[in-house]
Design a protein around this nucleic acid. Structure first.
Length: 153
DNA sequence: GCCAACGTTGGC
DNA sequence: GCCAACGTTGGC
């Protein structure tokens, strides 16, 4: 089992949006970055734990965590000309972008804010905290995941 | 709203 | 294959 942070702007898709989704499950569409795509396609698996991070918002924080319930499959929004995420270079035969499905598992008692994360020993290497980081699908080590879990209790 | 950092594009 | 220009991200 692996551990991840998925970033989302709550104005686009928030933790609460996830909670009111059918089965508290959503497909994670719209990733249009190759490194993040590779993670979704090749590495994110059923049962993996996903921390749900709100970016560009108040508070900047991990709100809770999810479980991956469906591993990588083609992002169909890339094939839909009406979608904001349409990519004419992607096709059914040769999909360029991938998505996974995640299901809400637990909301933290209080959000684990960016500030808290920065102050927590053991998270110095966390990609989320590196300057200029823009990756939206971030791998997290088991040790880091344990620390984040503790912070959320 | 600003702007630094980053990824992508496209002309050469 | 280089790199300038551009668009986007995301913390502040």
């Amino acid at each position: 089992m692996k551990y991840w942070i998925f970033k989302s702007e709550p104005g686009v898709f928030s933790w609460n949006d996830l909670l009111v989704s059918e089965n508290q499950t959503t497909y994670w569409d719209g990733v249009r970055n190759y490194q993040a795509r590779n993670f979704l396609r090749d590495e994110v698996n059923i049962g993996d734990l996903v921390f749900f991070y709100h970016s560009n918002s108040e508070p900047l924080a991990i709100i809770g965590f999810c479980k991956v319930v469906k591993a990588g499959y083609p992002d169909f929004t890339a094939l839909d000309p009406k979608s904001e995420h349409f990519d004419p270079a992607s096709s059914t035969e040769n999909p360029r972008w991938y998505m996974v499905d995640i299901k809400a598992e637990h909301e933290f008692k209080s959000p684990v804010t960016l500030e808290i994360l920065k102050q927590s020993p053991g998270l110095e290497e966390l990609r989320l905290l590196q300057k200029g980081n823009r990756l939206s699908i971030i791998p997290v080590t088991k040790q880091e995941a344990g620390i984040i879990q503790k912070l959320g209790r």
